[in-house]
């Protein structure tokens, strides 16, 4: 993904600062919206993460009933790529740093 690649470029000093910032785990969180259909959200989760139907539905219901679902966690760069893709599908998505390291 072009956008993610651009973040890691820059001066060496900036790069090391960025690398530090990238340490730790990041959560990709999808937030509820009143518009997108349940079947659509399930499709997106299956498509983006390769979830099976049961897992995709579990996350969709979490979003619907609890307002949010952590759909992936891991390294920052990959989390950004997932967040970008989910936003391309118009799901409201945020990144959160996992405090537990």
């Amino acid at each position: 993904m072009t956008v993610s690649q651009s973040k890691t470029q820059g001066t060496p000093a900036a790069q090391s600062a960025t690398e530090l910032e990238y340490e730790g785990l990041w959560r990709v969180v999808v937030l509820n919206d009143p518009v997108n259909l349940m079947s659509y959200v399930v499709l997106v989760f299956k498509k983006v993460f390769g979830f099976d139907e049961t897992t995709a539905r579990k996350h969709m219901l979490e979003v619907h009933e609890q307002g949010r679902s952590v759909v992936w966690s891991g390294m920052r760069e990959k989390a950004e790529a997932y967040a970008f893709t989910l936003q391309q599908w118009h799901l409201t998505t945020v990144l959160e740093q996992d405090d537990v390291r």
Partner: peptide, 22 residues
């Protein structure tokens, strides 16, 4: 953009590029 961009902790340039691609 149709859906709002939530907090992503991105710098301004990167954020603009991100939104532009979307």
């Amino acid at each position: 953009l149709a859906a709002p961009l939530g907090p992503m902790d991105l710098d301004a340039d990167f954020s603009a590029a991100w939104a532009g691609e979307l």
